[in-house]
């Protein structure tokens, strides 16, 4: 094993002046864009929105953009023109990376230019980046995030349990067992969640007087919906396990349920972690639809909090608050699941 220092020295020795230069110029383009913009916003202050607007339109910001554009375009053009002639693989990779970074810098600048030159940039900034307003709703957003996580977690737990049962049912060889499960899944996948929530509320809670709270109704309907999607995920996972596994288990005298429990499902579970995570992330965002139920103040999730706050202040920055909340939930979750996957994989593959 080479040390980090040795690897860096080896890499450097394989570079040419041009390849190193291209990499630095390309990276410089992206760096100037981000560092310059963030620095200007920070110096001038992100609030009030007027100062943010001022920064965006300032000559200094224009200089940052032009510099980033120049560096990016230079790296992109020179990089793509010269990478084939680089003498070593490391040099070629550096040249291509420089060109790729250059393209990214150009695209970023392009988007920012379009925004800056927009018809009514003042309105956009005032309506979406008026961060001052978020302050007073801080506690409400934190509470909203809690409710989002809780609704999604309960919904997913219900969904996994239900999905597993449904998956086993639709895999049955008997049509009378398969058909009702199939009908359930197709119904819940085939109708809008927002209608399911409304029907759950007006039909079950108000109409049939089933004694559950609105909050419980929301979690229940989310679970019933997630169950349909999880069922398909589990079905494909179970079907992906080689036939020989089931044959080996049955040949050892295991019953159908034993072979499922000890042999098939543990393997299938590992395979469905990525699609199941995906489903969970979709569910987290789908909790935004429970606003149709009209939850009580403390029961409101992120999106409902944002709607309320918007109604109070007529400013869409409130939705940016919700977006920050969703990202604060989903990004660590994605990271955690990736780590879990790697850990499980290390076990036997």
């Amino acid at each position: 094993m080479k040390t980090r220092g040795e690897r860096i020295r080896e890499w450097t020795s394989e570079q040419t002046a041009l390849s190193l230069g291209l990499l630095l110029v390309g990276a410089g383009g992206v760096a100037v864009f981000f560092v310059g913009t963030i620095l200007l916003v920070w110096l001038n202050g992100p609030t009030p929105w007027e100062s943010l607007l001022e920064t965006v339109l300032s000559a200094a910001q224009g200089t940052v953009l032009n510099l980033a554009l120049g560096l990016g375009a230079a790296a992109a053009i020179a990089g793509f023109a010269s990478y084939r002639r680089m003498p070593t693989k490391a040099a070629r990779e550096a040249a291509v990376s420089g060109a790729a970074l250059g393209v990214q810098a150009v695209l970023l600048v392009g988007v920012f230019y379009a925004f800056r030159k927009g018809e009514n940039v003042a309105l956009t900034v005032r309506q979406n980046f008026n961060f001052e307003l978020l302050g007073e709703f801080g506690d409400a957003f934190v509470n909203g995030a809690k409710n989002t996580v809780f609704l999604a977690a309960v919904g997913e737990a219900l969904g996994i349990a239900l999905g597993l049962v449904l998956a086993l049912l639709i895999l049955s060889e008997r049509v009378v067992v398969r058909a009702p499960a199939r009908a359930y899944i197709n119904f819940f996948r085939g109708t809008p969640l927002v209608w399911q929530l409304a029907f759950g509320y007006f039909g079950l809670k108000l109409g049939m007087r089933i004694p559950i709270s609105t909050y419980q109704t929301a979690a229940l309907v989310l679970g019933l919906n997630a169950g349909a999607y999880s069922a398909e995920i589990f079905r494909s996972g179970i079907q992906s396990i080689e036939r020989g596994q089931r044959e080996a288990a049955r040949s050892l005298g295991m019953s159908y349920m034993q072979s499922m429990r000890y042999v098939i499902l543990p393997q299938a579970f590992r395979r469905v972690i990525p699609p199941l995570t995906n489903e969970f992330i979709i569910l987290i965002k789908d909790t935004s639809l429970v606003f149709v139920l009209g939850l009580t103040l403390e029961g409101r999730e992120l999106f409902a909090v944002a709607r309320d706050a918007y109604a109070e202040r007529f400013n869409a920055t409130m939705y940016i608050g919700a977006v920050i909340g969703y990202l604060a939930i989903t990004l660590p979750l994605i990271r955690a699941v990736t780590m879990l996957e790697n850990k499980l994989r290390a076990g036997y593959r």
Partner: peptide
Amino acid sequence: RVRTDIGIVFQSFNLFPH
């Protein structure tokens, strides 16, 4: 019950990988 008295070994091993 019968299968506990009959062992079988397969071409593709079919060991439980987990």
